[in-house]
């Protein structure tokens, strides 16, 4: 691997983020963390992560959804894969969050707590396939 892939975790629970971050670091990724959506956007713009893990039930209920929409609206961020992580499923009145929730433009869906092996496998599917450059060379 020429350079480490960067993964951004946006989650307001420091413990959850710490556990996932350590696991991903142990598996060769560089991990960035943000505690809320606006911090997440700022880091995404500055650091251009290769993938984002987004909690969609942060303190402000709609923050995660809003952040994903904001990313999709910006040309420089819109192609970054976003995995949705949530422990709420359909519990919150007014929101139905399911793996099939197509209105939520995400690339993969995980219920918290996340199975580390499954998460890793999915991340590899997105990041470790040969990039266009490598194919060309």
């Amino acid at each position: 691997m020429a350079s480490k892939h960067k993964i951004l975790i946006v989650d307001d629970d420091a413990d959850f983020a710490e556990a996932i971050a350590s696991f991903l670091e142990a598996n060769g990724y560089q991990v960035l963390q943000a505690r809320d959506g606006s911090e997440g956007l700022r880091i995404a713009k500055a650091e251009r992560p290769d993938l984002v893990l987004m909690d969609v039930m942060m303190r402000e209920r709609t923050e995660g959804f809003f952040t994903i929409q904001e990313m999709r609206r910006r040309p420089e961020l819109k192609d970054i894969p976003v995995f949705v992580l949530t422990s709420i499923y359909s519990q919150v009145p007014g929101f139905r969050i399911t793996p099939e929730a197509s209105w939520l433009a995400h690339d993969a869906f995980f219920a918290k707590p996340v199975n580390p092996a499954e998460l890793l496998e999915k991340i590899r599917q997105f990041l470790d396939r040969p990039s266009a450059k490598e194919v060309n060379s």
Partner: peptide
């Protein structure tokens, strides 16, 4: 009930995540 469940779930998820990750770290 919904709220208490969610409140309990948040710390439980964190604990579970630590333990599960530990299981996966060599």
């Amino acid at each position: 009930i919904t709220f208490v469940s969610h409140q309990l779930q948040t710390p439980l998820v964190a604990i579970h995540q630590y333990l599960d990750v530990l299981r996966h770290l060599e």
